[in-house]
Amino acid sequence: MSELKTIDARNTFCPGPLMELITYMKQASVGDTLELLSTDEGSAGDVPEWINKVGHDLISNEKIDGVWHVKVRKAK
């Protein structure tokens, strides 16, 4: 059964949001969806780049009220 886990990395700077995501990604099961919250503009581009590079599934990446919401599914 997949789960949605929200990771609050607001107010941290690069590479803080990515480090937070990776830490939780390591603990997650294949098929789980994680949502990363970030206020770091650089990470909004860099985190999806990492997701694609290592082969997970980027579900969405949108900015809502100044906060980036990056949803990713653990693929392997």
Partner: peptide
């Protein structure tokens, strides 16, 4: 440290 951490986490 930024380069080391991101590179290592990217495989």
């Amino acid at each position: 440290a930024m380069i080391a951490s991101v590179a290592a986490a990217s495989g």
